[in-house]
Design a binder for these strands. Structure first.
Lengths: 197, 197, 197, 197
DNA sequence: ATATAAGCGAGACGGTACGTCACGTCTTTAG
DNA sequence: CTAAAGACGTGACGTACCGTCTCGCTTATAT
């Protein structure tokens, strides 16, 4: 595919927009592909053609939302972008994720629901995981960086995020994540907990 | 109901056994209630009568598996049971969870799939969460204990566990969890970072 | 299946009735299974469960309509039923078919559309064909009775029937069929091959 | 349009040839336009530009096959062409149709499938019907010539032809048609209603 | 022991949502 | 600038599977 046809791009945008609308209105999961297609004013086949499956639709929507963070990680200014020390980047990245999660709770829920067990293969998830893995690896060679990266991403689990912001708002989420992240930072001079080899 | 009918008890066991078998054979999720009923040699209605729903079936199966840990937490000997210092209990509990997860990876996956967003309401999950919340609260008053407890339980996410033991075995899972947990322990001069049994 | 469940029978009737209604309203073909299910107030799955396919639905509806004729052929009074000479039975049967076709033109069309090439396997068609084959075989051993029986049934082709009654009414259809049928009767002393007006 | 471009003519031929091939290979109906285009080595749009629709493709293919008969009817020698008595022309025409049907059974099936209810509007069908209508009208003023003409064409129904030649070959079809046609001839001294063997 | 009522077993049933299919259209590009 | 190529739009179809409901039978209890 060299370039996307004009009508395809238009319908693609309409479908994504319709999905957003429905996610905003209905917090509950039952957002059927039919309802999305109907609201977008296109046939159901179009949705499946463009996104492959229900999962693919939410995946792509999440990817769209995650674009900004991804770009800032790669080319943005410190501390989120390259150049800052790993500890600062880690905190900045988790802050960004917390922001994203707090403002897209329902999308996360839908994405989690749709992607089910395959969420580890989601491109967005993989990118985030890779970023975390590298930072953690630099900060704490004593930890299983890959595993810890997954656990940190699990801290933004849709249901957990929803419950947390429902009882404390986005601030509580950010604070909790931040406090948790600091536990992973290497201990300073006054911290005696020195991990073994 | 005074007593459980003999055939009912027998069928209940057959259903649970059939579910285990299917979980062992098929790693993939699509284990339909029909297939379970067929393999158990009972009608589908029996499954729903006994367990209420697909989720209930997996919930009960997990609860059965979690019975030992629950009892040891409540009445067992330290460090898992009462009496040991919180840090030791936390590590012991997470060790136990890692063992359970390593030996029941597919069940966890099925449970996660079936319970979906409602897994926070699962009795077993709640009990574990409450236990962790108290321990974390005692150890680290500076953290959001409830949130951290959820994150720690997220470290036993089905898909994550599966991938971890697939690439490193149960030992890697246990080690990774242990290393991660130590980050949460408060720094203390007299507590070794590697608490022995 | 020993006996049909009460609710199944009720829904079955509702579906057939809804199909009739839609056939009455909309002469055109596009009667989707969804529209039938919606009008019947049941799910689409129910329609497919009971009738197997879109074709099966129309087949069964036609069979229901053809029940009277089938019974009269088997056990009814002459000349349609047994006992009358073959020539009289042939004419009576074709008359009955013409009546049925004239009053169920749209159903025939839908049935033809749905059954497509497989209409020769339709139970109702087969019964009618067998009846005709026997009568023709008795009347005209010189003809290929099976083939002629198919041709005679082809005289009630949905599109042909529709056009004929649209330009001449049911009477024209009946007369045309009758005149055609007389050509097949063996020439007798008092019954000329050229029937009088 | 003054003349057909060379490549257009070539593509047209390739499409028709591809359709024939597929009709020969696959007796079953599901010959999609995509498969035809693919086998012809052209884009699907080309097929639709040339033939308007799926139906149009089969219609044109049938028309091509029917060209010889049409010419012989109009300008050929008796008994098929003009000049012979109606009875002879009728028999000759039906013979020719039987030959055509026997050698193009699958094409007839595809044509019937594609044209569906609109086959009465097919140019080829109309020409044949008109020819038959006139002959029947001359031979048997007592019959509904238009209706009988349709019934006679129905004797070459695709499914019927297929079954007949499958169980008796083309000879059985020709004989059956011939015997049936003689029933329509007016009784004459030297031409009995009961034709001999 | 037998009749009767309560409740269980089996799976057919009801319905929703999904993904597929193939027609016909429309945009893009090559000649 | 015309035509080829095929990506695109569309909606009906049939399927899968969850949870419910009905019917027949088994078990416990009363006589």
């Amino acid at each position: 595919m060299t370039t996307e046809r004009a009508d395809a791009a238009r319908n693609r945008a309409m479908i994504l927009r319709a999905t957003e609308d429905l996610l905003t209105y209905r917090e509950a999961m039952p957002i059927s592909v039919d309802s999305i297609a109907a609201r977008a004013g296109v046939g159901k086949g179009t949705v499946f053609r463009r996104f492959g499956s229900r999962s693919g639709l939410f995946r792509e929507l999440l990817a769209e939302r995650a674009t900004r963070i991804g770009e800032q990680i790669s080319h943005g200014p410190p501390p989120l972008g390259p150049g800052a020390p790993p500890g600062d980047r880690l905190l900045a990245f988790l802050d960004a994720l917390a922001d994203l999660a707090a403002t897209n709770a329902t999308l996360l829920a839908a994405h989690a629901m749709a992607c089910a067990a395959g969420r580890h293969d989601d491109p967005t998830y993989r990118r985030w995981h890779e970023h975390l893995r590298q930072l953690v690896g630099q900060l704490r060679p004593d930890l299983d960086a890959g595993y810890v990266a997954h656990v940190l991403l699990g801290a933004f689990d849709a249901e957990l995020v929803r419950r947390t912001i429902a009882d404390g708002g986005g601030d509580r989420l950010r604070a909790a994540v931040r406090a948790l992240a600091r536990c992973l930072l290497p201990p300073g001079p006054e911290r005696s907990c020195r991990p073994g080899p």
